[in-house]
């Protein structure tokens, strides 16, 4: 005897990635509020009048439904979840960067409600060019934390002493920040990061380098592709690149 297939309805979600599947369907990778990252097949979504049409757009807040017991779910509904920001221009690249981070680093079928909230917050603040870079840094920090790999920005080894503005530090992959006179990270920049204050260009440069270094072991020998987007010639001066 079989019991009814599990169903989920009205689940807040974002599309991370879409891949064409068979004739008119697609495999959709979703980041959901309560179920984490998962993959669903959207049947007939590439037909002109599909009910699932909204599931073809990433970076937009959706409410989705699915059914299925196995790894691969079947998408049953997708609709816009109310007011949304239209992500445009360079913010699109940042959005693709967030999506690549989540696809690469967040395990599937592992609920990440807090990270979902940070993702949502990051997207909603992406439209403003001045906050874009801090938003990416804060998200990277939260991602590391939620994956159990976070480290304190205001404490350092040896002895978990308070980070001092006038000293320099380096990152040790196992132990976190380490006091080191030749280290690349000045204490005052780390303290600014700990306070989410990215107003100084030096803090932004330092944060970029620190997050890159902290993420590197997780990425192995496959670097994030979306970083290459920020190398367009006209871009770059604004410094939002990851």
């Amino acid at each position: 005897m079989t019991t009814a297939e599990p169903r989920v309805e009205g689940q807040p979600a974002y599309v991370l990635h879409i891949r064409p599947y068979r004739d008119d369907s697609a495999l959709v990778d979703l980041f959901t509020a309560d179920y984490g990252r998962l993959r669903a097949v959207a049947r007939g979504v590439r037909k002109a009048r599909s009910r699932l049409r909204d599931a073809t757009q990433s970076l937009r807040a959706l409410r989705v439904g699915w059914r299925g017991r196995g790894e691969l779910k079947t998408l049953t509904a997708a609709e816009p979840a109310g007011v949304d920001v239209l992500v445009q221009g360079e913010a699109l690249w940042c959005g693709l960067y967030l999506n690549e981070l989540v696809m690469r680093l967040v395990p599937s079928h592992d609920p990440q409600p807090r990270l979902f909230a940070y993702y949502q917050l990051a997207l909603s603040e992406m439209a403003d060019a001045d906050t874009r870079e801090p938003v990416l840094r804060v998200f990277e920090g939260r991602l590391l934390e939620e994956l159990g790999l976070g480290f304190a920005l205001d404490r350092a080894e040896p002895g978990q002493q308070a980070v001092a503005a006038g000293l320099n530090y380096r990152l040790d992959p196992q132990r976190g920040l380490l006091s080191d006179a030749g280290g690349p990270y000045p204490g005052h920049a780390l303290l600014a990061m700990a306070a989410d204050d990215y107003s100084e260009p030096l803090t932004r440069r330092c944060a970029k380098r620190l997050m890159r270094e902290a993420l590197a072991p997780l990425l192995g020998d496959r670097p994030l592709q979306s970083r290459s987007l920020f190398n367009a010639r006209g871009a770059g001066q604004r410094g939002a690149q990851p």
């Binding site: 757009q57 990433s58 970076l59 360079e90 699109l92 987007l229």
Partner: peptide
């Protein structure tokens, strides 16, 4: 699409 728009913006830059 998001990717199509991101591509357009890249080419423009």
């Amino acid at each position: 699409t998001v990717e199509g728009e991101a591509t357009a913006h890249y080419i423009a830059e």
